[in-house]
Nucleic acid binder design. Structure first.
Lengths: 346, 346
DNA sequence: CTGTTAGCGCTTTCAG
DNA sequence: CTGAAAGCGCTAACAG
């Protein structure tokens, strides 16, 4: 392992100069720069990031803490984050919070101890926001993705309310009056906003809100079977379903199949979140698609810009979602081969 | 941030002792240990991993370098790795190699520079194995996943040859004689082994091998359209397809749909790799499922055991795959609600 | 425009 | 059973 001292000797300069050449952190004579570069070239020198970090500089690593890193939504986001971060010479430290506040805090502390320059977090439902408090006191820059919190911190996510209303109105336009929602995890802003959009959509369609038609998960990863059971029983069952997230959609589709129900014949279904392969599902799903890659890229952009300027005003970004019209809503089949209909949602 | 010096002072001992208490690296008097622990407790001290690393100790981080981290197969593996690693107090540094040898080498060097204690790598096709050479000379413990190389290094993957033969024979038993394979990326051991299994399956079914029925990708991420075109044109087109990996399966399914071909009516299809949601596809896919979580867990297990004992004999582990019988092969429909048929694959 | 030097927080000889 | 002290490789005052 070549060290900086070695390079300095080879180039006939001091370590200081090598360091400054490397970091562009002060003016250096052209020729000196050239000599240093030559020495670096010759020795194949690569700076040791650990030593760099210890000496007080940045680690050029950023922490990513999210739930269910195998969740397809987050995978897209993470993949975009990885690409964008790598572009800027940053490495990623990954942690799975499982959407549990305690685990989230532990994981984030771990990342901070490892001196990440900043972190991207999809905050778990946590009334006390312990993680955010910790981050604030530790002075570690962070950007939140997906879920929003009422705090002065950078955040990126998508529009939730209007698109969900669009989904509901689409169903109402098709003649449905018993439209239910199976929302995501209780306590997440996304869940709340989508439920709000659901209510708004009903109002705007002149339909009453029946709280019995609103289900949301209290615990991560529960199957949707009970919820579906409640929604479809009784004298006035739901005839159409809005599902609040893609992991929920999987569970709902499975629950429906368990009951021998076919979509959209027996029940119409639309969802929030697209899947990379939802065009291969049966039926093809009508959904709101989030700009996952943009969310990831923007998260890194915000984070890096904050590293540059700690005092910049916090930004809260809502990226537009798209309405992807396929067949699960029960509209006349779009034809397998035709282009999918994509319009801005709301 | 409390430092070790602070703790030492509070406990009335030297830093050396604190260090040894922390690491259990030499005998220390019971009472001294207690005093140190008390001081740690009192100050809320957490060791600084960066300083630790620089001082030559372990970083308790492991690098993970794979292609297409949004690829569902690798996501499962990574998710298992994350869980297992977190259990043992290790953090993950993630890098995407995109299956390109150059990028792979750069990423791995980067990870090594960041002093990962070891790494998990899904090696890109690379005749010269530059990355493995580098790892060997750098003396960094690594375990390979998914793909195998003829090198004395720990490796975990699945059985490829026999299961693929099983797939072929299943198709042959259904009366197909023109069975094609759309294999994965050229140069990967998985691809080669699966093609070998394909040939073996044909032999064992008394069918001739027609090289025109063997396609594999030369470049990552190419669509399957051309391959499908070649396979289905001519006077004696394929009537059944074996697809070599799940990302390929997606591309093949899309290509078939472009052509208005329905599975299994117009053509039978079976694949390697299961999807978490392949039971929601139309049709439900008959596949060989890899024990992805076990692969990830085993990879970490091997890596940690090597950190313990650098001189242990390298192990090469093949975990068994399972044959998941659904409908895309064209067998009489299994019924949507029945349990899927799962048997060990060869 | 360049160099000297004091750490960053910890591990680990070496010496009691 | 315990400590003193020398680094690990780099950054950033401070001083020309």
């Amino acid at each position: 392992m070549t060290t900086m001292a070695e390079v300095a000797k080879q180039a006939g300069v001091s370590m200081t100069t090598v360091s400054h050449v490397l970091n562009g952190t002060r003016r250096v004579n052209e020729k000196t720069i050239a000599r240093v570069h030559a020495a670096i070239e010759r020795t194949g020198y690569r700076p040791n990031s650990i030593a760099r970090a210890l000496a007080g500089a940045r680690t050029r690593s950023i922490g990513v803490a999210m739930s269910g890193i195998s969740n397809p939504y987050f995978m897209d986001v993470i993949s975009a984050i990885e690409a964008e971060a790598a572009n800027h010479g940053y490495a990623l430290l990954l942690a799975d919070t499982h959407d549990e506040p305690d685990k989230e805090l532990r994981m984030v502390q771990e990342l901070v101890l490892r001196q990440v320059d900043g972190l991207v977090l999809a905050p778990a439902p946590d009334a006390h926001m312990r993680t955010l408090d910790y981050l604030a006191t530790a002075g570690v820059p962070a950007v939140l993705v997906d879920r929003f919190v009422p705090a002065g911190i950078d955040q990126v996510g998508t529009e939730n309310e209007r698109p969900t209303a669009t989904l509901v109105k689409h169903l109402a336009d098709l003649g449905h009056s018993r439209i239910a929602i199976v929302a995501g995890l209780h306590g997440l802003s996304t869940t709340e906003e989508r439920v709000r959009g659901y209510r708004a959509g009903l109002h705007e369609s002149g339909l009453p809100v029946d709280d019995a038609l609103i289900e949301s998960a209290r615990i991560p990863y529960v199957p949707a079977d009970d919820a579906i059971g409640r929604l479809l029983s009784g004298s006035n069952p739901a005839t159409a379903l809005v599902v609040g997230s893609n992991s929920m959609t999987i569970r709902v589709l499975r629950a429906l199949r368990e009951r021998g129900l076919s979509v959209p014949r027996d029940i119409a279904l639309v969802g929030f979140d697209d899947f990379e392969w939802s065009d291969l599902f049966q039926p093809r799903l009508t959904v709101i698609a989030q700009p996952t890659r943009d969310i990831g890229a923007k998260a890194i952009e915000l984070l890096l810009s904050r590293l540059d300027d700690r005092d910049r005003e916090p930004q809260s970004l809502r990226l537009p979602a798209t309405f992807v019209h396929r067949e699960s809503c029960g509209c006349k089949a779009q034809g397998d081969r035709g282009p999918r209909t994509v319009v801005p949602a709301a």
